[in-house]
Simulated assay, not measured.
Amino acid sequence: MAEVRHNWTKEEIAEIYHSPLLDLIYRAATVHRENKDYAEVQISSLISVKTGGCPEDCAYCPQAARYQTGVNVHAILPKEEVVAAAEKAKAAGASRLCMGAAWREVRDNRDFDKVIEMVKAVNELDMEVCCTLGMLNEHQAQRLADAGLYAYNHNLDTSEEDYKRIITTRTYDDRLQTLENVRKAKITVCSGGIIGLGETVEDRISMLKTLSNLPKHPESVPVNALVPIQGTPLEAQPRVSVWDMVRMIATARIIMPKSAVRLSAGRTEMSTVEQALCFMAGASSIFAGEKLLTTPNPSFSDDMAMFELLGLTPRPAFKNGRLNQVAEQQQEVAEV
């Protein structure tokens, strides 16, 4: 059984990442079968509840106000529209709904109040509710937790060393502080990154080191392949090789054995065979539905056909129990 560690070195991670590809896949697949129901894949649906107009300068993002990408700015959606989207996603097989807002940070205003009401409403559908709203403080994280939020996504994107090349409007420490605030509220963490930004392999290894050495590993680690969008600074970046995706997924699976590793953005450019390699290497979660916020994504029907071909089944919501956060708190108290 793979040991859960929080003291990985860059050298150890690099040795895993650069190991012969078939050996790497075999090792990751072995860890995956030791720690997970490997034929189960969680299906998440991601919708944009507030689109465009973001003041950040993330070099990959079509929702940044400063870039001319053709994304139309939309105010926050009505709760009823979000609930309808959640019901449709659940009927198609999704067990988690992630709501994204193009904000730099959460503000204590009417829009945040509306998000709180959305979280409560989707939670009543017996779906895992996730949000990605930018930076948030402890109080805001607690409000989301009290509303029934199950997970919060806040990606590191790249390494700390490479970060300023991609984003200048916030710091790496800002990212880490938000993750800490989420943890304090006993919300599960979803945090990963993007490859294909023009980063080095060393940057990828550094990002994995940061994630794996957090006090607790993220419950979900998305591995995104950049989808270059015209009008962004990274519009001319070449497509990431599937072998790079496989190496990232396999390495993440080995060093964070209990986490769900999510095959995220970039799947529209991948064949079924390429996606199968990613599942073999330890991916255990996908986003389904025709869009990831503003970028294309395979349809539910295409994914269900792939699942049937590969012998995969959708993972039910709350597989580890709805009250797992409460149980952990009780265990922590018992250990003191």
Rank of each mutant, 00 (worst) to 15 (best):
S206N: 10
I286A: 01
I47Y: 07
E87Q: 13
L24I: 02
T200H: 02
R322C: 12
T272Y: 11
K319Q: 14
A147H: 04
V31A: 10
W8L: 09
E202V: 05
S284F: 05
F318Y: 13
A225I: 09
M270V: 09
G192K: 00
N72A: 14
D111N: 11
S259F: 02
R96D: 09
M306T: 06
H18Q: 15
P316D: 11
D174K: 00
Y26E: 15
H139S: 13
M135L: 11
M248R: 02
E332K: 14
F318E: 03
P296L: 10
N72R: 14
A86H: 00
I286F: 05
R143F: 02
E124T: 12
E12P: 04
L176G: 09
N213K: 03
I16H: 08
D126H: 14
E56R: 04
K10H: 10
I255E: 06
P238R: 01
G321D: 12
Q331P: 06
G289N: 04
L156V: 03
D157C: 05
Y163Q: 00
A101G: 12
K164C: 13
M135Y: 09
D108S: 14
P228T: 04
A65W: 03
P222S: 07
E87H: 05
V240E: 00
E160F: 08
F300R: 01
L21N: 08
K36G: 11
Q325F: 07
T69W: 07
N35R: 12
N123G: 11
R33N: 13
A29K: 11
Q142C: 10
A86Y: 02
Q42P: 04
I195T: 01
S299Y: 07
Y172R: 02
P298S: 07
P296V: 11
A225N: 14
I255Q: 00
M248W: 06
R27T: 12
I229Q: 13
P238E: 02
R165E: 12
R239A: 10
T158M: 08
